[in-house]
Amino acid sequence: MAQLEIAELTKIYTVGNQSITAVNSVSLNIEKGEFVSIVGHSGSGKTTLLSIIGGIMKPTSGRVVFKGQDISALNDDSLSEYRNEKIGFMFQFASLLPMLTVRENVLLPGLFRQKRSGGDEKKAEEFLNLVDIGEKVDAYPSQLSGGQQRRVAIARALMYGPQVILADEPTGDLDEETEADIMGLFRRLNREEQMTFIFITHNLDLAKMAQRQLRMTHGVLAGI
């Protein structure tokens, strides 16, 4: 059984009288520990697909099954637990909360967990060091550059050891050197922790680092 089974997934947006099919009957199986890239033009439906897999958007039809559990059938609490425990989401925009420090932003998913571990603060600092922003733990997002905020978001996504990382252009604001470091980190976590990575990129060179490369065109997914 695949870790993620996506079957006949469709998402149709209605804007006024017009219907736009963002994702059109996408079916896809992803095994545990796969490293998958998705490329495609803007508006091709990549972000929508990733959002549905991550449980932050409901599909119009079709199913996303995680380890045998249809997430479209989950109630809000169970879906929230799925997002909190199984998924690490990296958005393509700055996604930090402005009133929280860097450390608190990384610890944010833990705030919504029933059990909170005493070692979380130390672990958060380790992840922040890993993404090379350890000296800014007590800074607020407004005191960071776009690239630094992106690194904090990466640390937050990795912090509680999710089984699947969904990353929407994770290295978009980063310089080449940091980009390479981050991708190296992803590869290492993928290899050592068997963490599944699905990431969207416009950078074909980055896409080629993935085991499996997918292209999305007008809502339809195809292998490269």
Partner: peptide, 15 residues
């Protein structure tokens, strides 16, 4: 937007 981010990282409606 902040609420959306919190929900995305696992906040339930009750949170």
């Amino acid at each position: 937007r902040e609420v959306g981010i919190m929900r995305a990282v696992g906040a339930k409606e009750s949170h």
